[in-house]
Structure formats: structure tokens, C-alpha cells
Design a protein around this nucleic acid. Sequence first.
DNA 1: ATTTATTTTTAGATTTGTCTAAATTTATTT
DNA 2: AAATAAATTTAGACAAATCTAAAAATAAAT
Lengths: 218, 218
Amino acid sequence: MKYSVSEENYIKSIFNLQEANSTVSTTMLAGAVNTKAASATDMLKKLHSKKIINYRPYKNFTLTDIGNKIALDIIRKHRLWEYFLVNKLGMKWDEVHVIAEEMEHVNNPMLVQKLDEYLDHPCFDPHGDPIPDKNGKIRVVKQSDIATLPLKKILTVSSIKDQSVKMLDLLKHYHIQIGTKLKINKKFDFDGSVEIKVEKYAATILSEQVAKNIFCTV
Amino acid sequence: MKYSVSEENYIKSIFNLQEANSTVSTTMLAGAVNTKAASATDMLKKLHSKKIINYRPYKNFTLTDIGNKIALDIIRKHRLWEYFLVNKLGMKWDEVHVIAEEMEHVNNPMLVQKLDEYLDHPCFDPHGDPIPDKNGKIRVVKQSDIATLPLKKILTVSSIKDQSVKMLDLLKHYHIQIGTKLKINKKFDFDGSVEIKVEKYAATILSEQVAKNIFCTV
DNA sequence: ATTTATTTTTAGATTTGTCTAAATTTATTT
DNA sequence: AAATAAATTTAGACAAATCTAAAAATAAAT
């Protein structure tokens, strides 16, 4: 089944709102897709008739299993493209969202598969959000900051707490970005600083403050 | 100025039809964008009001300078994405057109620039069609087949005459594709065969029949 | 528990891009 | 040159997605 760009945007927004809130309202949805509540209602009725959402007038609505599947597919594409834009084209974290918003609607399963292979099956987008796999499964992994993770294990950077420009600058200097693999060599109790080794770069020391901002999966 | 996907498709089709034919008709255009003549007329009137085409009812129409500029920009994106899909994602010549047809409408100048850099400013797409530069300029270069080109010069493969699967197979074996750089070492008068050297591969000999199908720029 | 405020839905209109069928213009034939 | 054929345009309708303004339902406040 093929869905219009509008339908896809509504579906994706419902998913994202469900992630962030216990309950989703027509007004919230309208806000998310940048329309008016009346327009959202129209679309809700259409999505309901297509069995994409559970919907009763004046009551809350949720994605059906079908709707969830569709949403995850769109989000997969969005995040893969974000990863591509940052890690291949060298764009910045904050520049890629708007572009990925357009690319996510390019509909071609073969393309997504090849892109995923080309990027080497990344698990997290540049903002640290997980990328659903081809079956819509999101790998649930506990991520912790470097200050608390164990030594000598290969870790993968999965998200950064402080996403300010200053932090970004610093991380660039350390050759650290989402997806970077690194190892913790030593922790210094004196000031909580940590020596890490990023693949093919010389080992360096991070302050505790920085270490606490870098989250990794094992 | 931003144009709808529909407008862009019409503009691009007019350009392509103008390239291939001396004159473009409403019916031809309708065929190219897969609609009916009546719909094409509606769009022609709209494009005329936006000064994208020169148009008088019942007469032939042409792109204005503005229209030409827009078309070249779309075609640039289309061909850059085709190049990406083939040379980075490893897709096949005949698979990429449909996908690029969607990607070409993603509108972000920074994206196009970064993509162009990432691909190292290619001049020809995988079908051998030239890729307009950022100013819409198409580098006019005379291309000739290997059988007639001079020895010892660095040549760039720009198009393949016979695009059959059999030929494709053979070229893959020789590590030749659009954009490949090669040098002609020697020509054998006995049977017209040619010894070539493709970057970092051992020199090999092509039959005259093959050589005549491979077009290069100097 | 009424009243008031907020949210959601309905009703009717608009825009974009499309269609069919009929009318008009241009091209072709006899 | 008149008749026929083909191409193009007009007229009117339709689907998708949106809007405003008004009505209906739910939630909050006195």
C-alpha cells in the first residue's frame, strides 16, 4: 500500500507524539503537522477508515499495529538519511532534520536496503535516536555515560546529552560522533577524568564533565 | 521560488522533449508526464503565467530562460542522485531512474552541493548523460570511441553505446563504467583490438567491437 | 450543578492537479 | 477549396488537503 506524503507525515507525527506523551490530542497533532485542528480531524477520519488508527470522535486515538509498522518504516528512513547526511556528506546535526523530512518520503524498499548496507547498518542516528531495523524492531539497549561504563570494552557512542555547539566542537576535536567505537583505558580517581582510545587515533583524556555527556552501548 | 512536484515534472519533461525533438506538442508533453492533453494545457497556462514557458494557444511552446534554468537544476539533481545510486550504493543502471525521479524533488541547495562534493563533481551520469554544473552549464565535450581516440592520454569513460546486459557484464569484468579513467597503450592493426590500462588494474585488450562501443572524453 | 472555557467536529469554501466530453483550431486529404 | 481528421483548448466535475466559522461535546471553574 502507498500513502501520500501528507498521510505519512500525520502517521509519523502520531508515533512521535505517542512516544513523548501518554495521550495524543487532535490539537497536538495539528500542531505537529502544522495545520489546524479541523484538518487534523479530517485526516484522522481517513486514517481510521484505512485502519491505521483507532479512533472514536471526541476520544483519544492511537496507532493500530498497521499504523505502527508504517510509522516505524518512515522513521527508519528518516534516521538512515540523517546518518547519511552527517556521516557521509559531512553536514551538521542541526542541518539534517529538515532535509531528512523530505527524503523519508522517497519510497523504494531496495533503496533503503542498499542505503542501510552502505552505512553499515547503523543503530543510532546523529541525534542518538535509535534506527528501527527492516522489521521495525528497535534494538533496546541500555546506554550509560563513559564515566560509569567499564574499562577495556569496545563501546559505541549512541547519544550525547549536551548537544550545544561548544560540545559539538569539542567532540569533533576528539573524533567522537554518534556511532564512533572507542575503548576506556583508565579512569583517574583524582578528578574523575578518563583516558579513552578512539579507533585509529591516539589515546586522549576526557574531563569527567565531558565523559558524563557521552553515552555508549556495549 | 519553490515549485510543486507536478510543476517540476512538467518543466523537466519539456526540457527533455526539447532536447530530443525540434518541436514539442501538448500531446507529447501529456504523454511524458503521464496525463491527458487537457491537464497539460492547464499546466501550460500556469507555467506561462509564471513566465516559465513561452506559450500562445494552439501554437508551440518553449522554455524561457527562467524555465531552462529550473529544468537544468532538476536534471542536475536527478543525474547526481543516479550517479550516487550506482557508484555508491551499487545499484544497476536500469534500476536507478525511477528512484532518482523521486529524489530530484528534494529541494535543498546545501544538500546538492555536498552531494556533488561527495561524488567528486561527476560530469556524466551512469547512462552517459552530462550532469549540469551548479550554474546549469553543461560541459560540451566531444566524445569519441576508444577505437578512434589517441594513445597515451588519460581518458574518462563518458557513455556506452550498446547498453545491453551482455555488454554491461563484459564491462564489469574489465572494471569499466561511466567515469572510469583509462589510457590506451597500443592499437593492433591486425584485428583493430586495443590494449588499455584502467587505473590500478593490469592492462587488458579489448576487441575492436567492444572498443567502438566505449565513448570517452579527453 | 450550572456556567464558562476548551477541545473537537461539522459544514461549506478554496486550491491544486486531474479527468471526460464537447467545442474550437489547425492540419491533412480528396 | 471543401471536407475530414487530428490536436488543442474550454467547460464543468472530482478528489485530496487545506481553511474559516459555527456547532457540538467534553473539561474546568465557580
